[in-house]
Write a protein that binds this DNA or RNA. Structure first.
Lengths: 206, 206
DNA sequence: CTAGACTTCAAACGATTGTTTGAAACGCGA
DNA sequence: TCGCGTTTCAAACAATCGTTTGAAGTCTAG
């Protein structure tokens, strides 16, 4: 387990897999395409990850560990300072995803991979995500319940379900809106986040 | 081209393909799985549709022709009677999808297939959908512009993009909300449509 | 410098992929 | 009943799939 060597091969596989999963889906991207893009040997995937399914899980783990941490950290900060409102809770959820998609080159494509996970009815993948990161959504649901006290539980869950859909879809860039020529990636993403918070807050509050 | 024979084999392939595409994706569902589920010979797909890609397009065409017609019909009726408002235009868009998902057994799974199409960056599939059904979205965008005159074009497009995401995601049943035990499929779907219109109208108007 | 663990490599495994083939079965007008 | 276009069928095609293998290469601790 040499740190440098392991980092290089493992990380390059994860990066190439992430990009190809976003573009062609989990079944549509083959390990040969992944290893070719990563410029590593085909057998390296099974050596480092054991199987394709494990590779898929690791692609999620690499990003979601950090993303979930930032989201909950933001939420805790709001609760501690008493600044929790509908808009700030939404911001606590959205901004880390925004930063991730701007941070590294692969960040924005990961949001597409994440959106694909929702479309997959693959039960083992859903179980993996629910078991490892379900508590994040639970904590946020509780926070939303606190800032939307007039909604009963059933009503709140319906609206959160719709809101998550809007956020997932938008952050994955599935829409038709294109970045204008003079506009930077950062400016485009920040505008999207602003619209998302505005739209979703209105829908949740209505 | 005997009507009865053609109907039977073709239609059974389309039904089985629709279900398996919804469950496993376009790349994840093989023609052998499709033909086995449809109880037809493997070669029947290439005989009746030419290729897997053509089969995928036909799965969309079968539902979208009718769906688009109903949507535009509803919209035209609103314009003719002067009843066009934000809620009624949304209803004109959503209700046909609701009816489709309740009408036939395969209707609800088709909405999942449609949502998968958004996740696919497959350019030929996107081109097929845009060329054949893009005018529906264009007509509705114009209608929304009329009932939301205070929004400038750029602002409207942002919000419609988000709204389409919310609708697509929700109608595909990607969320975590489950039908309650005593609740009928129809009641569940109608409640979802009601929440969707309410949420989206608020987001668009805000 | 050597021993030994770690990593990479080319090659091959059986299984499965979309597609094609040519013959068999079918259905219907003459 | 015959003949012919339409449809179905089992079988096979080359290509690709995820995975495994054992040897070659690389690295560091002793």
């Amino acid at each position: 387990m040499q740190p440098s060597a392991q980092f290089s091969t493992r990380q390059r596989i994860l990066g190439a897999a992430e990009a190809l999963f976003a573009e062609r889906g989990f079944a549509g991207a083959s390990l040969r395409q992944v290893t070719a893009a990563a410029k590593v040997n085909l057998a390296a995937v099974n050596y480092h990850f054991g199987s394709k399914d494990n590779l898929i899980e690791e692609v999620f783990r690499r990003r979601l560990d950090e993303l979930s941490h930032h989201r909950l950290e933001n939420l805790a900060k709001l609760e501690a300072t008493g600044n929790a409102s509908l808009e700030t809770v939404l911001d606590a959820f959205i901004t880390p995803a925004l930063e991730l998609s701007l941070d590294r080159k692969g960040g924005s494509v990961f949001m597409r991979v994440l959106a694909r996970a929702f479309a997959e009815h693959n039960s083992s993948l859903r179980r993996f995500l629910s078991e490892n990161y379900g508590y994040v959504l639970k904590d946020f649901a509780a926070a939303f319940a606190r800032v939307l006290p007039h909604l009963d539980k059933q009503e709140l869950y319906w609206r959160l379900d719709i809101a998550v859909g809007a956020l997932t879809y938008a952050m994955a860039d599935f829409g038709v809106i294109q970045r204008r020529s003079g506009e930077s990636e950062r400016a485009y993403r920040e505008q999207m986040a602003r619209h998302l918070i505005h739209f979703t807050a209105a829908g949740l509050r209505a």
